[in-house]
Amino acid sequence: MTSKTKAQIVVQIKNLVKIFSDEKEREHCVLPGISLNVFEGTFLTIVGPSGSGKTTLLNIIAGLEEKTSGTVKIGGGADGSQLAYVFQSARLLPWLTVEENLRFVKPENTTEESFKEKIHHYLSLVELNDVTRHYPHQLSGGMQQRVGIARALCIEPAVLLMDEPFSHLDEITAEQMRVELLRIWEDTKQTIIFITHDMQEAVTLGDRLIMFNFRGEIAEDLAVDLHRPRKFSDRSFIEFYAQSVERFQNIRKKE
């Protein structure tokens, strides 16, 4: 883990401020000025109460929402760096087959053939080789979400953004998906920013854990130094989990 300090910074956020104004022109400050560096290969999980601006942060990184002030740099800072976003629902195009859905996101500068190879590589990574010609409605919710993940991976993004991607799934499927996501992450060493409201999920997945408070500030920034695979029966895991929950409750008490 010591090598991480020398690793490249993939996402660099400085003094990011986001203020919404509603239809009655009242202003709501969602992000009061956040600074954050994410290193290459990190699995960063973010936990926070609902309405604390987690999703807004991801949307700004992804370019879906305008920031009020501050800077966000991705990759080397060049504009061409690719991003991928896995949403709560899979957001597949229902009229395209699984394979066509992946082909839909082909970057402009990639050739058709090399991208086809990537599609097949990542579809086999999420174990969906058999259903390439199926339409989304023929797949279960978990399978659809796996297609969403394969779609995100196959553009080989600088950073993979995930916004509670398993919250719409039943707990058994979600648990399987977490195991698979970790396996894929170990394989690809993909930089991931993962939002959740579930502390256990955050501790299981991340190697860095950030907690937001109600005002949208970073209240805690912890390194999760637990060996993998992590099991809920491990003593160290339970201790870390319990500590995190306690810290999170303290954050909420201060409100």
Binding site: G63, L83, A84, R91, V105, I155
Partner: peptide, 16 residues
Amino acid sequence: KNLLDMAKTYRIKKRK
């Protein structure tokens, strides 16, 4: 709108 947002994050061209 969710699908259009998705396309935006993947930087899909308007024509596509």
